[in-house]
Write a protein that binds this DNA or RNA. Structure first.
Lengths: 344, 344
DNA sequence: TTGTAGGCGTTATCAC
DNA sequence: GTGATAACGCCTACAA
């Protein structure tokens, strides 16, 4: 024991150099063994109250911080959960992420966040990467194939959101009620020829919505057409105006608010009166939907609650009994000013 | 070597059970040493091309995935960066986060995300927690005191954003140009009595903006008053209307768009004509600002670029030479329809 | 070029 | 109740 580095810890330039205090340091400081320290800190009660107190005291004094990474090695549990989202350009996801993060941090999990920029390769890579460091993965609006997702789900707990995949846990808003209300609303106003402004063809949710709208319209005797678009964005919604006008529909259900608002804006630019000439219904109820004139009639999507529920589901898959979410996941029509009876 | 567990790896129920393949497994499989495998995978070139190829091949075959956590233990580098934001309820931060995440993932870093819900204790805990697992921290709109931040910055690389703290790296948009343009714009329109709808008193950025506006107004001979609010939100902006009307100002500069839009909405509800009776200028240029009628005149805040720049700065502090950001951080006035000459 | 040995900070399984 | 000791998966001198 010659030339013990002494207290090099505190004074090496003072910045970013002192290496962290470990349970080993504590043990040495107190003439105890590292295992005792570990136990005292993790399984309170299994150690004499007195020594436990001493240890906690010393830990505070020396500024001990547990190194979660080191702990993750023997246990295999990192208490990290990953959120991978295919496209984060829609502000609607904002609340989803907040909800998921809130639940995660409340239960002592760290949330890692990645956007895959719509690329399936990027997405699959990200997931595989993350799977080795996270306890579970939350896939939001994934662009992967069902079989890819099923395969990924075999390795580690995984939950998909805004989508359903056979054999994989999933959490999505109940879009049916809101959509039904929307179609009934239009029907009640007298619309008999309606357009569905479509989302991404590869999106499960888009096909799901289309099917619901289709069935509902058929059963009410409404003619319905699907109007394809390039992307689920504001601009793409605006560019759809030609197809919409050409179709002769009197009302439009849009895949999301971004598209509806883009279309609304373009209508105004081109002098198409909303709602007199064309009724418009969005989806999500993002910030901004109620700010326009006319304010947008839309379907409220409880994305904060969906994010919470999805994270809770994931933690359940991980094995952390976490209780159930509170908020309802049902969507609901919010009638504002962009819908009215069709002009004859 | 009796009862070697054989190939238990593949068949234990098939799900979530097979423990990951390690460099050790590869080494054994190839009759090499783990270190050779490690080198082949990390420092290409330092190993004979032939064996390196064999190793890579085997890695692919056996589905080897590096365990970043295990690697982080000896090196102390996790390639994790943490983003802690005090309040994520303003959609303006949306783009900031996207920018930061993009840069991080492009450089092979994983982004962990935490919202501290406006609570300084939560924030400081989160940072300390994260400091042991992350290579660096990005603090956005921190509610901590300068001295707390300075102290935290001594442990690990840390960058503050939307704020300046002596001795700590920081990245913030240049608000001066946009604010100057805004004041000049109002001055040019003939306004001589202006209100500043204030942000959080504890916010560095709020004080910074107020000082800039104050100086600019004084030098132009404009009377300026600071109108306090409860929170930087839509509702709080709406509730400020009484103070605004009572003050007699002819124009308002709001701390952010949320507040400006809230105030705008309330003006419309109460029959105050914007811009005829009251001119309104926001800040940030969030989605929604151009959707209102009248569309909101506001200051464009390049938050995506700020997020990128902040992350690049952080990586630089970490020691990862990462190049410089491209986008300008200057703000700029966007004149729309919520400003006009004051009615006499 | 490749192998050996030790350590990173924690947890877990034994003894005592 | 407490203490050795051996993992966990990877990295890195140092040795061969």
């Amino acid at each position: 024991m010659t030339e013990e580095p002494a207290d090099s810890s505190n004074l090496r330039g003072g910045r970013k150099t002192r290496s962290a205090v470990t349970i080993y340091d504590l043990a040495q400081h107190l003439n105890l063994s590292p295992s005792t320290v570990s136990r005292a800190l993790n399984k309170p009660g299994r150690i004499s109250a007195k020594t436990e107190a001493r240890i906690r005291e010393a830990a505070k004094q020396l500024g001990y911080r547990r190194n979660p990474l080191a702990g993750a090695l023997p246990t295999g549990k990192t208490r990290i959960v990953a959120l991978v989202i295919s496209d984060f350009s829609n502000p609607a996801y904002f609340e989803y992420v907040r909800g998921a993060e809130k639940v995660a941090s409340q239960l002592g999990y760290t949330l890692v966040f990645t956007e895959s920029q719509e690329s399936p390769e990027t997405e699959i890579n990200a997931v595989q990467q993350l799977q080795t460091s996270a306890d579970g993965i939350l896939l939001v609006a994934s662009r992967l194939s069902d079989s890819d997702i099923q395969e990924l789900a075999e390795t580690k707990p995984l939950v998909v959101s805004n989508r359903h995949v056979a054999g994989v846990a999933s959490v999505a808003p109940e879009v049916a009620p809101g959509l039904r209300q929307a179609v009934e609303h239009l029907h009640g106003l007298g619309h008999r020829y309606v357009g569905y402004l479509s989302g991404p063809p590869a999106s499960w949710m888009n096909r799901h919505r289309w099917n619901l709208v289709l069935n509902e319209c058929v059963s009410l005797g409404i003619s319905i057409v699907e109007v394809p678009t390039e992307a689920p964005t504001h601009d793409s919604g605006a560019r759809a105006i030609d197809r919409i006008r050409a179709s002769g529909v009197t009302a439009v259900l849009a895949y999301n608010d971004l598209m509806a608002l883009g279309l609304l804006k373009e209508c105004q630019r081109q002098g198409v009166a909303v709602p007199d000439e064309l009724s418009l219904i969005g989806f999500d109820n993002i910030y901004g939907a109620e700010l326009t004139t006319p304010a947008l009639t839309t379907v409220q999507n409880p994305l904060h609650a969906v994010g919470e529920a999805a994270m809770l589901q994931l933690l359940k898959e991980i094995g952390d009994e976490a209780g159930n979410g509170q908020g309802s996941l049902a969507t609901q029509l919010v009638v504002r000013e962009s819908t009215s009876s069709p002009r004859l």
